[in-house]
Design a protein around this nucleic acid. Structure first.
Lengths: 114, 114
DNA sequence: TTCCTATCTTGACATACTTCGAAACAGTGG
DNA sequence: CCACTGTTTCGAAGTATGTCAAGATAGGAA
């Protein structure tokens, strides 16, 4: 087994390499990536991030999907902690959670690109 | 909290906000997030990123999964462009594709946190 | 050479989860 | 009351995950 030959250059790629990605950490973080792993949700997240906040009624027209389906995708983004929302009168407003995006970004970031 | 102070800070959250996330872009990028959206694959990616390169035989023992299942997950990481591999003799060696991780990181990064 | 073993991938399959729309429900305001 | 907005529920269709068995590739022994 070539274990001795693959010299441990730990930490030279990115945080992903140095972070203790045990079972629990993976189970906590994976749902966030999973939420962004759907084209509709990725576009929804981008549209929400592009403004201070945005009404669902402004999101729906951009997709060839029913209201319930958009609502379902928004719920997944919400449960992943990537967005939050509040009802104000008739409309529900969504906004991005920058800290969540930042934590994912840091995880993937390469301080010492090779 | 005076809402006028944080009005329309388009592009101030992250690249995700400014990137043209049209249908095509979303379809291209989402599979990468999706690949990382599974706890097993996230741990695999972390283990691969933690070394210059690593043999499949060194990955498998860390999981309570069969060889074929690990191979399946590695294939998904490979097809997403997050890792690459090469057979050398008996063993197959995997390594991370730092550029792919970096592009995802940049997308999520918040240059001007708010 | 031929046979055998080890490593990894692929194919076939059962089970579980995702996605989506139709209908029903809940909250707001005229 | 009614109209409007958005969410939830339910079911059908599609997709993903995991195991077992078989195939492909490499290398060593007889």
């Amino acid at each position: 087994m070539p274990k001795e030959l693959s010299v441990r250059v730990v930490g030279e790629c990115c945080q992903l390499a140095t972070t203790t990605m045990d079972d629990a950490a993976a189970a906590r973080i994976a749902p966030m990536f999973k939420a962004l792993g759907d084209p509709v949700r990725l576009r929804l997240a981008a549209m929400i991030a592009a403004q201070d906040e945005i009404c669902v009624c402004d999101l729906t027209p951009h997709f060839a999907l029913s209201g319930p389906t958009i609502s379902h995708h928004l719920k997944i983004l919400r449960e992943a902690g990537l967005v939050d929302c509040e009802r104000r009168g008739t409309w529900v407003h969504y906004w991005i959670q920058p800290a969540a995006l930042q934590s994912l970004s840091t995880l993937l970031q390469a301080p010492i690109p090779r």
